[in-house]
Amino acid sequence: MALPRRLIDPKTIYLEPEVRNFARGREALERFPDARLIEVASHARIPELFADEALAADWLRMKRDVLVLGVKKGLALRPNGRSADFIAPSTSNGCAMACSYCYVPRRKGYANPVTIFVNVEAISAAIARHAAKLGPKPLPNSVDPVDWVYDLGENGDLSADATITGTVRDLVAAFRDIPNAKGSFATKLVNRELLDYDPRGRTRIRFSLMPEGPSKVVDVRTSPIEERIAAINDFVEAGYEVHVNFSPVIVHEGWEPEWRGLFAAIDDTLSDRAKAQLKCEIIMLTHNAGLHEINLAWHPKGEDLLWRPDLQETKISQNGMANLRYRTPWNKTWLERLLRWRSEMIPYCEVRYAF
């Protein structure tokens, strides 16, 4: 397989001992037989990874050379209401890609390798129990008119995870048999192996898109924007529901022609069938001072776009973190402009939410 060697080829695997009791755990270990194995009591407490400030400069190498395998302990589901009705227990944390605006490393520390949770059967069962207790969705909402939607990849990218183990294949298969429920995840990687998973309309993939210029700077180790757009038709034909996620929207000098160019590329590329089912999310950039400091150690060029104190102000997020967002009322004005360009160029692409 080409993808695992390009994105991740671990020289070291940290693992909780019970990982060997699970089929997907054994599969991951067999896939990388030459890796050095280090047993740990908890996937979340590895001081030599997450507490070593010097590792920030080795950000990309750590993603390629290190893998963490664990067993997901907490199986609670949380309400969402934006990308999904509920956030499902994650089968991963961290990502083999390295988008410099990603919120996950704001909490992880100075290294952000992939952690795969191998007890996918328990995670699928928790989702099935939750959906059964809810019963049919009583009313349509902005998430979905018919089904309860569960976000499966809040803290990672499942297209990349699928190059490591079969947990993603298992999740897609599980949703074929869960009444009134649909799985959903965002991705920046075109992994064509997923085309063979037979989702039968029960899994929604959200391809994250932004103009090619900024993407080349901040979407590190991801599939090119042109490739993501071109893949939409194929994934629709394979039985996925495919939406797009315009995120993050990075405002900078000359951003209007870039976004108009992106919308034109979508309109020129998508089939009539893909356009008919297309919806989107729009999320303006959120940044963070701690992440800014980490990024300066490995990718300072990206901060020229992301760190704009002249345009940003501090906002306290729902989880209590102090983040940077574009200043009020500029954020609203710029979002309204983007929405207007969308309505002019791809009016068939319904906006599910924007902020």
Rank of each mutant, 00 (worst) to 15 (best):
A131S: 11
L134G: 13
P89N: 06
C102M: 13
V114H: 04
C102T: 06
V118E: 04
A88D: 08
K63P: 07
R129S: 11
A126G: 05
A128N: 01
K72E: 12
A122P: 05
A56R: 03
A56G: 02
S100A: 14
P79S: 03
I116T: 10
I127P: 03
V71Y: 13
K72M: 02
L134W: 06
Y101L: 14
K73D: 11
V104E: 05
C99V: 08
R129A: 15
Y103A: 15
P105C: 09
T115G: 07
P105F: 03
L69Y: 01
A125R: 08
C99A: 10
A131V: 14
S100I: 14
Y101A: 15
M62P: 06
R82E: 07
G70T: 04
A84D: 04
P89F: 00
R78P: 01
C95P: 08
V66S: 05
N112W: 09
R106W: 05
L67W: 04
K133G: 03
A111Y: 05
M62Q: 13
G70K: 00
R129E: 15
G81S: 05
V104M: 09
L77W: 06
Y103Q: 14
V68D: 10
V66H: 02
G109N: 10
M62G: 09
S124T: 15
V120S: 06
N93C: 14
L60K: 06
R106C: 11
A125Q: 13
S90K: 06
P113E: 12
L134I: 11
A122W: 08
A88T: 12
L77V: 03
R107W: 05
A125L: 09
E121N: 12
A111Q: 08
S90W: 07
L75R: 03
